[in-house]
Structures are given as C-alpha cells and as structure tokens.
Design a protein around this nucleic acid. Structure first.
Lengths: 225, 225
DNA sequence: CGGTATCCCCGTCGATACTG
DNA sequence: CAGTATCGACGGGGATACCG
C-alpha cells in the first residue's frame, strides 16, 4: 500500500494495519478458533501460503498475534490486543449480512461451507457414537458435489470422498440455498417445507438434524425491512 | 485489488468493499458530517481528487452513499446502509486508540488537527460575538506554525494566516502534545500543569478554553492497563 | 466549488513449485 | 505440518495539471 495515511486519527491508524487484503479475514479465522497454519489456509482457500505467512508476520509485529512454537507444533494465538478486534469483525459481519445481499456464484464455495459447518456443530445435540451426514449439491461441479461430515463425541471431520461409514442422514440442496440457510438469509423450515432442501433418513434424525448445526453467528442478525 | 475473496462470509463480503485504501476514511468523514467534495478533501489531505472521486462513485454504486445535486450544489449523503457503518468506524477507532500507541511525526498534521477541532466546538460554551483562538506550534515547520480559529455564534473557521481580528486566547504547545490531548492520550489538566501546553490571555478565558473544544469521540475510550 | 484527464512507477498479489 | 522461493503481470494509486 501507500502504507500510511499520515493521520493521527485512530481510525486511520487502525486501517493502516487492517485495510490490507486478507488481514481482517485472518483475524476472523483466529477469532473463530483456528490456530495452525494449514487450518488457517482451509478457511482462506484463495490465499497463497506465502501471503498468509507474510500477513502473520505483520500481525505478529503489530502485536495482534503471537506465534507460539512448542517443538514442532506451531500455533498462532491472538494477543489481548488481537482479541479486541472481535468487535470489529462482528460489526463488519453484521453490516455485511444486512447490506450485501447479492452473493455471486463464485462466492458459493462448498468446501468453505462445510468447513464452517463442521466447526459449529452442537455435539450435545448429535446422537452418541459416530454420525455421518452426507451433503449433496446436485448443481455443483462433479468434484464438489458430495461431502461427508463425520461427527463423533468431541470431533468432526470433513471429507470430500466417501469415508465408507454408513450414512445417517443425507442433505440434498442447491449450494445457494444451503449457504443462505447457513447465513440466516433463509430459514431451515422454509427451505424444508418448499422442498428446496431435502433431508432423507430415519424420521427422528431428519427432524433433529437442523439442531446439530449452529448457524453462522450472523444468522440471527435482523435484516433491513 | 484482486477484488473478490470468493467467500460467502459476511465479513469477507463487507471487506471486498471496505478494505480498499481510503474507503473507510471517507465513511469516517461522512459520519463526521462532511458532505461536500472539498470538505471531504480537507479531511483527507493526502488523497488525490481523482481517487476521491473514484471512491465516491464506488460507494454510490454500493449503495452506501447518495450523490445529491441540487443545482450546482453537490452533496454526498450516507444512505441508511451507509449510516450503519458508524458502528464499524467506532469499533475501529476504539481499537486504534487503545492499541496503536505510537504516532509517527508524520502523523501529526496540524491542518488536520485544527480541522478536527473546529468542527467539534461547543458553541454554547464559547463567549458570544466573535472569539479568536490562536494556536502556536513552535516545533512545527514555519508555514504550519501558527493557526487561528475564528468562532462565532454558529460557525467556526480555520485560518493559516492572521485573520486580523484581536486574539482572545493563544494556545502554545508542541504539536505532539496537542494531538495527544485531542485524542485523549493525555489530559488537558496534566498538560497545563506541566507547562507543556501554555494558554495565555485573560484568566477567565484561559480557564474556560478547554471547555470550548469537545475532544475526539475516542478520547473517552479507556486505555489498556 | 466539483470534479476529469493523464501518466507512470512501483508494490502487491497470485500462481506454482519446492523444502525440512 | 509449516512454511520459503521465485517470478511476472497487473493495476492501484500518487502527483499534477487542467476544465466547466
């Protein structure tokens, strides 16, 4: 960037750091609980690893992130100053979900959707043992059509190939509708009633499934009239 | 920019618009009450007019700003969606004032300081008629050393040349200290007691002067321990 | 006052490959 | 897993001049 604004205004000073491409999305990921390098990458698929590396260094220099290496285990952790960026991220998301209505087809990344969903599972609501949910997006390109989330008592994994375990429930929907439900643009119940999302499997599980997934934190933001 | 993040996340969608250089500072200016093109420029001295023009068009296209031309009078006004960016600007400023401690000498722009101060005058606290306050920054370059604010009942003007009217009070300080007081990093009383800011003039006015200026909205943000 | 037009430099970012 | 290395294109944006 031109790098500096040459202003003493706190907003300007904050933006000198935060207006660079990707920076605030990295903070979002950290706020969401990601800590490892490749974990961050999964939440930022279009970002090159070198750029992520560079940004993490910048954030560390700025005192927003601390790099903690214990042996070969490396973790990026928000400092107290970094944690206070949470309100910034929340304000941006709240604004975004209200005022950026239109999502392009390019924005509908199933990998990202599943990655988001898997880390917001309400494990207490899911039956014990191992539960496999299959997602099917008939309108997506062949390679991105089928996904599985394998849920256990305290973990969840995303697969883009059949993990082999028996599937408890299958969710079938257009990618767009599924994203809209996740974001809270549209409700589960409407989408189910209209048949735009189909859930198949034993009735008890079918009914329970919407409770397994805690939706995006922005889903509950009221929308403009 | 690479322009898009290709994510449906509301934070990402918001940043697609707002992470471009200068954009959020324009919003800050609009939130602060500026409406005319050259008024905006005064709050963004280092921004080229062409870029400002371009950004305003982008903001208009995004539905954040409305361009209202009545005859030859042109005003840029925040739409309802734009007004809801206020919490974003406030969150950024609140974070910035807490965690970006160090201001470079380059950040200490007296023109910007006076511009900020003049639009935050508590006219009810200032004596009636015309009151002229002179600011003197001995450490600033010759051309930026002396400034005058001419305050009337419902207006205030900044001059960088002596407007000729009798001066009611003169404030003398280092630019840095004055900025720190304005931002709330340092209190009026400390700066006055230590002599780092000197106010000269009739005692009643000298005492009253700190009340004439409402400090930055971020001045009251509590600082980290 | 309210902008456009132009010009060119330099840094950013993206893509990809590769290493310990 | 956790990054570095390299490379090239592109375009953002800074400066300045100018117009109605």
């Amino acid at each position: 960037m031109g790098s500096g604004y040459y202003q003493f205004c706190p907003v300007a000073k904050a933006m000198e750091l935060l207006d660079e491409r990707w920076t605030l999305l990295i903070v979002r990921e950290l706020v969401s609980g990601s800590q490892q390098f490749n974990e961050l990458r999964r939440g930022l698929p279009r970002m090159s690893p070198s750029l992520l590396s560079k940004r993490l260094q910048q954030l560390a220099r700025a005192g927003i992130v601390e790099r903690r290496a214990e042996g070969s285990d490396v973790r990026y952790v928000l400092t107290p100053g970094g944690q206070e960026l949470r309100p910034v991220v929340e304000a941006l998301g709240t604004w975004g979900v209200r005022w950026i209505g239109e999502l392009g087809d390019e924005d509908l990344d199933p990998k990202l959707l599943l990655w988001d969903m898997h880390r917001n599972i309400d494990h207490a609501a899911v039956p014990g043992g191992r539960t496999v949910v299959r997602f099917s997006f008939p309108d997506a390109p062949a390679k991105a059509r089928d996904w599985w989330i394998v849920i256990t008592a305290d973990d969840a994994d995303v697969c883009d190939v059949d993990p082999g375990h028996p599937v408890a429930v299958t969710v079938s929907a257009s990618l767009r509708r599924m994203v809209e439900v996740w974001r809270g643009d549209s409700g589960w119940s409407n989408a189910l009633r209209s048949g735009e999302i189909e859930v198949s499997g034993p009735e008890a599980l079918r009914r329970a499934l919407p409770l397994w997934f805690t939706l995006s934190v922005f889903a509950s933001v009221p929308r403009p009239a």
